[in-house]
């Protein structure tokens, strides 16, 4: 039996949100890992992460597989009318624009505190490590804020 369009549309919407939440987790995990490795390249935690580097791709594939199973028999087909509606949806595009603005402002505002943190507080870091840590934290923060803000704005409201 074919599912009603309304149900399929809701299913794809939930899938899309779960996908974004999953992306947020990956960004945060990778960012935190990269930051630890930049700050303490020879530290115990960094060595442990290096040994467990196989874990990330496997966890990503498993997570993606779990996401796909949440769709049941349906597949994310970009040509399906419900998926087209989601991809070109004005409300989501508006929220993407808003989230991008918020992320941009947060990145701008946090540059000085981050510079102070890595340049002054962690003065024992080499210049290269400090620059690397600053770049990683900026990218991670920006992407995290962008996805998190989008998920917040895109939530259901009465």
């Amino acid at each position: 039996m074919t599912e009603p369009t309304e149900d399929r549309s809701e299913l794809y919407l939930r899938f899309s949100r779960r996908g974004m939440a999953f992306l947020l987790i990956i960004i945060m995990a990778l960012g935190a890992t990269a930051l630890v490795m930049a700050l303490q390249p020879g530290g115990a935690f960094s060595r442990m992460l290096e040994k467990a580097s196989w874990f990330f791709p496997i966890a990503t594939v498993l997570g993606f597989g779990a996401l796909q199973t949440s769709l049941g028999k349906n597949r994310w087909n970009p040509n399906a009318p419900e998926v087209k509606a989601i991809l070109s949806d004005e409300w989501r595009r508006t929220n993407l624009d808003r989230a991008m603005k918020v992320a941009f402002i947060v990145i701008l505002v946090t540059q000085l505190p981050l510079g102070w943190l890595f340049g002054v507080m962690l003065a024992q870091l080499s210049v290269l490590r400090a620059v690397l840590a600053m770049a990683v934290s900026t990218v991670t923060l920006g992407m995290t804020i962008f996805v998190a803000t989008f998920l917040y704005l895109d939530r259901d409201q009465g």
């Binding site: 309304e6 549309s9 809701e10 009318p81 989501r92």
Partner: peptide, 21 residues
Amino acid sequence: TQADLAAQAGVTRKSVNGIET
């Protein structure tokens, strides 16, 4: 419903909800 109208207009229920509110 919001979903009915959204399907007819080719958008998601969230757009209809966003406009209504």
